[in-house]
């Protein structure tokens, strides 16, 4: 069953077509990596899935329904089933780290403040932030910390679907590995579905069960890493050229 389905998406931004007939389906439980050159339109595609923008043509279905279907309560309930990590964090600058992560939990309703506290502290621990960081405001965080807090916020409700725009950009290799481990364990435990944009081959090969390559305004190919690797296209050859080097070094 597909959690996310994009059919015949055409998008025009400014004077240019960013997407021409993009098709993509993400089955439940997949860990799909979306790769593509800078400016290929990956973030724009994620924004369609979240429902922030609408394509000029084509349909977006999330959890089997059009993203804008239903009344306000239905839409909100649907949005609480997925978590989003924006490329630049998009933390609420006036709130502390703690309140940023607690925000979706409070919006969800029905939780006691001590439960919220335990959940927030556990999310922060998951992304390797220390309790003393909880009272900082976003302006006092380093670039990588912003990413990790944003990830903690996206994970706050442990949603079924995670949409992550470059989750490991700006993280050191150890933290990237920690991120991979965290997503894997959540995946095993809760069967999450994750769509993540990445330029990082290590994360890609360690985490992705499916890879979709975006180029020439569409999804060139989607499949397992091996399938994608075999695909003859200059972009793909270039993108994975360095992977061969990595593999060699690791003696694979």
């Amino acid at each position: 069953m597909n959690l996310v389905e994009l059919e015949g998406i055409w998008t025009r931004l400014g004077q240019e077509w960013v997407h021409r007939d993009v098709n993509l389906a993400v089955a439940r439980g997949e860990l799909l990596a979306l790769v593509g050159g800078s400016g290929a339109g990956k973030t724009t595609l994620l924004r369609h899935i979240i429902g922030l923008t609408r394509p000029a043509r084509g349909t977006v279905r999330v959890f089997g329904e059009p993203i804008h279907a239903g009344n306000r309560a239905a839409q909100q309930a649907r949005r609480q089933r997925f978590g989003v990590l924006f490329q630049h964090g998009a933390l609420f600058s006036a709130l502390t780290v703690y309140d940023n992560v607690a925000f979706p939990l409070r919006e969800f309703g029905g939780l006691h403040e001590d439960e919220i506290r335990a959940l927030v502290m556990s999310r922060l621990a998951q992304v390797e932030l220390e309790p003393r960081h909880a009272q900082l405001v976003p302006a006092q965080l380093s670039g990588g910390m912003v990413k990790r807090v944003a990830l903690a916020r996206a994970l706050a409700l442990e949603p079924e679907l995670l949409l992550l725009d470059e989750p490991t950009a700006g993280l050191d290799p150890e933290r990237s590995a920690g991120f991979v481990k965290l997503i894997r364990s959540l995946h095993a435990q809760l069967g999450l579905t994750v769509v993540f944009v990445t330029h990082d081959l290590e994360t890609l090969s360690a985490l992705a069960s499916q890879v979709a390559v975006m180029a020439e305004h569409r999804i060139l190919v989607a499949g397992t890493l091996e399938q994608v690797h075999q695909f003859e296209h200059p972009f793909i050859q270039n993108f994975f050229r360095f992977r061969a080097v990595v593999d060699e070094r690791e003696g694979l």
């Binding site: 335990a118 502290m121 909880a134 009272q135 095993a188 435990q189």
Partner: peptide
């Protein structure tokens, strides 16, 4: 066994109070 991880996460933080 895989439920243990869920409890493991909570165990460390359930009684933790932020400053």
């Amino acid at each position: 066994p895989d439920l243990h991880t869920a409890f493991e996460r909570i165990r460390q933080t359930a009684d933790m109070t932020p400053p």
